[in-house]
Simulated scan of single mutants.
Amino acid sequence: MLNVDEIQKIIPHRPPFLLVDRIDKLEPGIRGVGRKCVTMDEPYFVGHFPGKAVMPGVIILEALAQTGAIVMLSLEQYKGKILYFGGMDKVKFRRQVVPGDVLTLDVEIIKHKGNFGVGSAVAYVEDQVAVEAILTFAIGE
């Protein structure tokens, strides 16, 4: 398990844009399972939506991407690098995420060649799928 201090040693994101609170399972270069505890204090809830707080889908995708970044940047050859979004495919939003929910962020690397790769990403709330997507990435300096 990685706590937030250990996560910040791997990826460059910082609050309020660090969207992974902890990593429960980590197989470097293969798979990671993280958590994001969604609170009403998140800055995007001010405008999304007044009177009906819903976590923006793109923020959930970013949390999944950060989890994937932790998976890849945990490999020795990528330490100190940055993982960039290359694209998203087959994105499906299946459930709203609201304050009080705990997102489980599960990313499995399904293809990796050189500095490029693809991950299968699923965000859950309890046992319900909230978002699923195929994410492509590039590793840079």
Results as ranks from 00 to 15, higher is better:
residue 34 G to M: 04
residue 90 K to E: 09
residue 57 G to C: 09
residue 38 V to I: 15
residue 51 G to M: 13
residue 36 K to G: 04
residue 42 E to C: 10
residue 120 S to H: 13
residue 88 M to S: 10
residue 92 K to M: 14
residue 104 T to E: 09
residue 42 E to M: 11
residue 76 E to K: 15
residue 53 A to Y: 09
residue 64 L to D: 01
residue 61 L to P: 01
residue 93 F to G: 08
residue 86 G to M: 04
residue 57 G to V: 07
residue 62 E to W: 05
residue 55 M to T: 06
residue 78 Y to R: 10
residue 44 Y to N: 12
residue 119 G to F: 00
residue 89 D to P: 01
residue 72 M to I: 12
residue 52 K to C: 14
residue 113 K to H: 06
residue 77 Q to C: 08
residue 55 M to N: 11
residue 75 L to I: 05
residue 96 Q to K: 15
residue 127 D to T: 13
residue 76 E to W: 06
residue 130 A to F: 06
residue 68 G to H: 02
residue 70 I to Y: 03
residue 36 K to C: 07
residue 61 L to D: 00
residue 54 V to S: 14
residue 113 K to C: 03
residue 74 S to P: 08
residue 53 A to V: 09
residue 62 E to Y: 08
residue 104 T to L: 06
residue 97 V to M: 09
residue 118 V to G: 03
residue 114 G to V: 02
residue 90 K to G: 03
residue 126 E to N: 15
residue 139 I to E: 00
residue 58 V to Q: 12
residue 33 V to Q: 02
residue 78 Y to C: 04
residue 71 V to P: 00
residue 86 G to S: 05
residue 134 I to W: 00
residue 74 S to G: 09
residue 60 I to H: 07
residue 114 G to T: 02
residue 90 K to S: 07
residue 68 G to R: 01
residue 73 L to S: 02
residue 34 G to I: 01
residue 39 T to C: 13
residue 39 T to H: 13
residue 49 F to R: 15
residue 35 R to K: 15
residue 49 F to A: 14
residue 139 I to A: 03
residue 78 Y to D: 03
residue 77 Q to K: 15
residue 72 M to E: 04
residue 75 L to G: 02
residue 71 V to S: 01
residue 101 D to S: 10
residue 86 G to C: 02
residue 63 A to G: 09
residue 134 I to L: 13
residue 125 V to I: 12
residue 106 D to T: 03
residue 37 C to M: 09
residue 137 F to N: 00
residue 82 I to W: 02
residue 105 L to F: 04
residue 34 G to T: 03
residue 100 G to H: 09
residue 129 V to C: 13
residue 96 Q to V: 13
residue 91 V to Q: 07
residue 128 Q to D: 15
residue 113 K to A: 07
residue 82 I to D: 01
residue 140 G to N: 10
residue 88 M to E: 01
residue 86 G to L: 04
residue 75 L to N: 07
residue 73 L to F: 04
residue 133 A to G: 05
residue 100 G to W: 07
residue 37 C to R: 14
residue 57 G to T: 08
residue 93 F to H: 12
